[in-house]
Amino acid sequence: MQIHVNGRQVEVAKDSTIGELLKSFNIQAKLAVVEQNQQIINKTVYDETILTNGDTIEIVHFVGGG
């Protein structure tokens, strides 16, 4: 199925989780915050949160700024 991740279309397996998505990008250990359809997902439930076809996922972090 297709989801949108940070503005790009990404193909993921049916019923995969946010935890698996982060693993696929190799960013589990980084200080990321994840939004699924504009809802912030708590880190503790990444592995239980199922992705749905058409989901919009934003993975954000802190960058330099004033």
Partner: peptide
Amino acid sequence: TFAVRRMNIFDENEPNLLEELDLQQYDLLP
């Protein structure tokens, strides 16, 4: 201070600013 932006997940070699700083020493103001 920091800004909040999309992580460049499509380039895992992108350096992360936060990893360069000892964050225990500072209060963060995003």
